[in-house]
């Protein structure tokens, strides 16, 4: 099922300051129904602050947020009735078992845990054990189970795969695709590019509290386009690639070996034609990943569209 364009989350110039410290600044975005949206950034960039503002755990300094068209402040219960939430660094009541924790939250939500059995089976989770006796990964599974178990319309997941092994991360990605197929909306934060790339339709990259870009995953990876490594049989002048638009030398180990990036208006054709003026020993090229796009944003270079 595709996104139908109705905004589920709408943030307008949302700003949160903690005294002198900027949590987030003028953050605006929309997540539409049926969409999987990833907020990508390293620790401390403002991802958790954004999520906590959406859920009314903290209040904005300025700007506003709306979820399902409602205000988190005045309509918080109506919003959260339709939300499954996984906090970052999930911790829960160590003295309780997984079964009693899920029972407790089921009562508080007033909705049946329709997916509980299937989720436990999927994650091979024994909910009869006390939370305090579980490993970090198994605690995270409890967090995921309680977020998904009531079949909510919107899932808000803060670093959902923290502590999960690769197999379970893959299982999580499959689950996100299934939820999306059912028309559910998912807003997740992550610092794992591979996770976002595998699950999200769109991604917002957040840096020091500011949303530096927001785009589809496919377009973002296209923006970063390609990288190339060329080794010449003999030294070539270091200014060889200087005048090629959109092409930059990212690394040069010696006068014979050049690492280049091709982005925006740069073209592979002009790179090859320029390089071919010199005798080439090897030429390697590959499509950049979202990670490259992400790192580019974090190094302060913004890829040109």
């Amino acid at each position: 099922m595709q996104s139908n364009g109705n905004p589920v989350i709408k943030l307008e110039n949302l700003t949160k300051h903690y005294g002198e410290i900027v949590g987030i600044q003028d953050l605006s975005l929309e997540v539409t129904e049926g969409e999987v949206f990833g907020l990508l950034g390293p620790n401390g960039a403002g991802k958790t602050t954004t999520i906590r503002l959406i859920l009314d755990f903290i209040r904005p300094t300025s700007g506003k947020a709306a979820v399902f068209g409602l205000s988190p402040r005045s309509d918080g219960t109506d919003i959260r009735r339709r939300v499954g939430y996984l906090p970052g660094d999930f911790v829960t009541y160590d003295h309780m078992t997984g079964a009693t924790v899920t029972e407790y939250f089921t009562h508080l939500r007033g909705a049946g845990p329709v997916k509980l059995g299937a989720l436990c089976e999927r994650y091979k989770l024994d909910i009869s054990r006390k939370i305090g006796q579980l490993s970090k990964g198994n605690k995270q599974k409890i967090g995921l189970v309680q977020a998904f178990m009531n079949d909510p319309d919107l899932l808000i997941l803060d670093e959902p795969t923290a502590g999960l092994d690769p197999l379970l991360q893959y299982e999580f990605q499959k689950m996100i695709h299934e939820e999306k197929a059912q028309g559910k909306t998912i807003f997740m934060s992550s610092h794992l590019m591979s996770e976002v790339e595998a699950t999200c339709d769109r991604v917002g990259i957040i840096r020091e509290g500011k949303l530096v870009t927001i785009d589809t995953v496919s377009h973002l990876t296209e923006l970063s386009l390609w990288t190339a490594k060329i080794t010449f049989t003999q030294p070539v002048p270091s200014n060889t690639f200087n005048n090629l638009p959109g092409i930059a030398v990212t690394d040069k180990t010696d006068d014979r070996t050049y690492n280049l990036s091709i982005s925006g208006e740069g073209s592979m054709d002009s790179l090859i034609k320029t390089a071919a003026k010199h005798p080439i020993q090897t030429f390697e090229s590959q499509h950049a990943s979202l990670e490259d796009a992400f790192l580019k944003y974090y190094s302060g270079e913004e890829p040109e569209a």
């Binding site: 859920l55 755990f57 918080g76 219960t77 959260r80 009735r81 508080l108």
Partner: peptide, 14 residues
């Protein structure tokens, strides 16, 4: 302080 309040208030309660 034990970080369970966020989780509790993630439910539809005030």
């Amino acid at each position: 302080q034990s970080h369970t309040l966020d989780q509790l208030l993630g439910n539809p309660i005030t």
